[in-house]
């Protein structure tokens, strides 16, 4: 058991922040946080996002079907063509990735696989850059294969737009530690809902 005196000594030596982070991250994941992610992780995240987009498109398609059935009972329901569904799915995926990367830097797939998209300075992407990268990803998804061969784990889109997908596991409970008394009147803690 750590005594309170030992705790204060660790705090004054600055070792406490790292320990707090360590408390929130699995030990095996600590060494590679911040590195550019590899192909497998990114393809899984991308697959999750595509699956979500497909589910959403399917949902929209089902909703349209139900609305038509309800509004025109007894008549034959004409559904949109498959091409239309694909276009809608692409559009939805582009919009979804643009919003996600420009705001949190993560899509749902990225969040689940512990990824975050950053620009050349390590900041979240701007809206235009995010939209451009989203167009690239939706229009040429095979650019992701370049991650395998890139010396810095960059996809083709990343190489062109100078962005990076890094391992950055979401830390949801880091804010369990209370802020210092003089900073308690500031903004609510990021970990709070």
């Amino acid at each position: 058991m750590t005594t309170f005196r030992e705790y204060l000594e660790r705090k004054s030596s600055g070792a406490l922040e790292a320990e707090a982070i360590e408390l929130s991250l699995p030990e095996a994941a600590r060494p590679f946080q911040g590195e550019r992610a590899g192909f497998a992780t990114r393809i899984v995240a991308c697959g999750i996002d595509v699956a979500i987009a497909a589910i959403v498109a399917l949902g929209v398609w089902v909703c349209i079907f139900l609305v038509k059935v309800i509004l025109s009972p007894g008549t034959e329901v004409t559904m949109p063509s498959f091409a239309w569904a694909i276009i809608v799915s692409y559009g939805f995926t582009w919009m979804y990735w643009t919003m996600a990367w420009a705001t949190t830097g993560r899509t749902i797939g990225d969040w689940m696989m512990g990824l975050r998209i950053v620009d050349i300075h390590g900041n979240p992407l701007s809206w235009p850059l995010s939209a451009l990268r989203s167009v690239f990803c939706v229009g040429f998804p095979f650019g992701l294969i370049w991650v395998l061969f890139s010396p810095s784990n960059r996809s083709l889109q990343d190489t062109v737009l100078r962005t990076s997908a890094i391992y950055d596991w979401a830390v949801e409970i880091a804010a369990v530690r209370l802020p210092a008394p003089d900073s308690r009147q500031g903004a609510p803690s990021p970990g709070s809902p």
């Binding site: 929130s24 911040g34 975050r116 390590g122 900041n123 990076s164 890094i166 830390v171 880091a174 530690r177």
Partner: peptide, 12 residues
């Protein structure tokens, strides 16, 4: 090595 710091390490 990527630019910036991961949020998992700088959040606190």
């Amino acid at each position: 090595d990527a630019p910036g710091e991961p949020q998992s390490l700088v959040a606190l």
